[in-house]
């Protein structure tokens, strides 16, 4: 393993800078929402982390397809790195969502389609990690991981669809679904700018973390190979 590539270091700096800028925008640039007050500011990073979670899951499935096609270890490392990042960010999404929902919906949790799907997605990720931990042979671990990432991502849209259908037939929804955070309050231009900037920032965070995690994964892979060699 060589030292940190120059582009990665540049990416680190860019990410750190725009992250600070995004925090600044959320707290000082975006106006306070009239009805919900300051708690609405959680929305910018909430949606952005949800976006990163989805990105992680999608990236894992795409990496899975490429792994099955090429059998190159790198794709496997990218796959589980993306899943790990996804787990963290979906969790952040759920927690920030609860913080917002408590004062606005008067409940921490409701079985709204998006919430349900996020929870189930998180469980799929966790199952993915457990599956990998149970397999010693690295090739098999990579293959099974790839297959499960693909199967998992294929089920998510259907889960969302059924959860939505579930609710429209049972009209006992507490509050409306979070899409009305877009429709529930009209975003002023400044809010929209902050929102889009947060999305951009978190995409950079995702890229940066993924790159770092993949480098770590490559190192871990080398260690594992050395261990195997020693045992032989």
């Amino acid at each position: 393993m060589t030292s940190t590539p120059r582009w990665l270091r540049i990416l680190d700096y860019i990410t750190a800078t725009i992250f600070m800028a995004a925090i600044g925008m959320v707290f000082f640039y975006a106006p306070t929402e009239a009805l919900m007050g300051a708690v609405q500011r959680v929305f910018y990073f909430h949606v952005a982390s949800g976006w990163v979670g989805m990105l992680g899951f999608l990236a894992a499935a795409v990496a899975g397809v490429f792994y099955l096609k090429t059998e190159r270890r790198l794709w496997d490392i990218i796959g589980f790195s993306a899943v790990e990042i996804g787990i963290v960010f979906v969790f952040i999404t759920i927690v920030t969502g609860s913080i917002w929902a408590r004062p606005v919906w008067n409940t921490w949790w409701t079985w709204d389609p998006r919430l349900t799907t996020a929870a189930i997605m998180e469980l799929i990720y966790v199952a993915y990690i457990m599956l990998r931990q149970g397999i010693e042979d690295p090739d098999r671990r990579a293959r099974y991981g790839a297959v499960y990432a693909i199967v998992g991502v294929a089920s998510v849209p259907l889960t969302f669809l059924s959860a939505r259908l579930f609710r429209t037939i049972h009209p006992i929804v507490v509050g409306s679904d979070p899409s009305s955070t877009l429709g529930g309050f009209d975003m002023t231009p400044r809010m929209l700018q902050t929102f889009l900037f947060s999305l951009l920032t978190f995409t950079f965070v995702f890229a940066d973390l993924l790159w770092r995690r993949v480098r770590l994964g490559i190192l871990a892979d080398k260690v594992e190979q050395l261990k195997m060699k020693r045992m032989e």
Binding site: L123, I124, A127, M130, Y148, G152, S155, S162
Partner: peptide
Amino acid sequence: LLPILLFPVVIP
């Protein structure tokens, strides 16, 4: 492991 793998995917 099987139920843990299967149930979240088969929820729909």
